[in-house]
Amino acid sequence: MMSLIFLLLLVAMLCTFSGKKSTSYVLFTASVIIGLYWFHHHATDPLSILL
């Protein structure tokens, strides 16, 4: 999942360098939303530690 986020950011940077700013904004926004979802998934996951 993390590799998908980094891949989206890479493609967004390549789109920015090639002059497609609207596409890069969409990809960057998608990567931020996916990253926040992924953080929320891990931050609220209960730990299975038996003490």
Rank of each mutant, 00 (worst) to 15 (best):
M1R: 03
M1W: 05
M2P: 12
M2E: 15
S3P: 03
S3K: 10
S3Y: 06
S3C: 05
L4F: 09
I5F: 04
I5D: 01
I5Q: 04
I5V: 14
F6H: 15
F6D: 15
L7K: 10
L8S: 09
L8G: 03
L10Y: 04
L10I: 08
L10P: 00
L10Q: 09
V11W: 01
V11D: 01
V11T: 08
V11E: 02
V11R: 04
A12W: 00
A12I: 00
A12R: 00
L14W: 07
L14H: 06
L14V: 13
C15I: 02
T16C: 02
T16M: 02
T16K: 01
F17Q: 13
F17Y: 11
F17P: 01
F17V: 12
F17A: 15
F17W: 13
F17M: 13
S18I: 00
G19E: 03
S22N: 06
T23Y: 01
S24Q: 04
S24E: 04
S24M: 04
Y25L: 10
Y25P: 00
Y25G: 09
Y25A: 06
V26G: 05
V26P: 00
L27Y: 02
F28M: 14
F28N: 13
F28E: 05
T29E: 02
T29H: 03
S31A: 14
S31P: 00
S31R: 00
V32K: 05
V32D: 06
I33L: 14
I33G: 10
I34T: 12
I34H: 07
I34V: 15
G35F: 08
G35A: 14
G35L: 07
L36S: 09
L36V: 08
L36T: 09
Y37Q: 02
W38G: 10
W38R: 12
F39I: 11
F39N: 07
H40I: 14
H40C: 14
H40F: 13
H41C: 04
H42Q: 08
H42F: 10
H42W: 09
A43L: 07
A43G: 02
A43F: 05
T44Y: 04
D45S: 15
D45A: 15
P46D: 07
P46M: 09
L47G: 07
L47N: 07
S48P: 09
S48R: 11
S48I: 11
S48L: 11
I49Q: 11
I49K: 13
I49L: 15
L50G: 05
L50D: 12
L51R: 10
L51T: 13
